[in-house]
């Protein structure tokens, strides 16, 4: 009993000082999908493999539309991409106020569901 009291008095708390001290993110974590359209050939392999149908590839328009809210972070697209355009970022997707589709066309653009920037 006394041992428990003393060890509880002098031991560190089990919790973390959250905003000041963040949890370390693991090395191989499947955080969120990151597109890099520079090398993309718009083959659509990622869209075919995606179990959540979160990716749409428009080959003639050279456009990749990625629905962040459908994504289940399974990393299938990253495995399917032969050009290495898709990586799993070592950070989790941030919360946001609006549902946004991320459109990649040359330079990445952000639009909401209505097509407004």
């Amino acid at each position: 009993m006394i041992n428990n009291v003393l060890s509880n008095l002098f031991s560190k708390p089990a919790t973390r000082d959250f905003p000041a001290k963040m949890r370390e993110i693991a090395e191989n974590v499947r955080g969120s999908v990151e597109f890099n359209t520079e090398n993309c050939v718009y083959c659509g392999a990622c869209a075919l493999k995606c179990p959540a149908n979160a990716i749409e590839v428009d080959r003639p328009a050279k456009k990749v539309t990625f629905d962040l809210y459908k994504c289940v972070a399974c990393a299938c697209c990253a495995e399917a991409c032969r050009k290495g355009c898709i990586q799993m970022a070592k950070q989790y997707a941030h919360p946001s106020y609006r549902k946004m589709d991320v459109v990649f066309q040359g330079e990445p653009l952000l639009t909401d569901a209505n097509g407004d920037s």
């Binding site: 693991a26 090395e27 191989n28 974590v29 499947r30 289940v72 972070a73 399974c74 990393a75 799993m88």
Partner: peptide, 15 residues
Amino acid sequence: MDIFDKTAGSRVIIS
């Protein structure tokens, strides 16, 4: 759960 995070890349649905 931390083991899953490190080995599989996700805590709950480890895929």
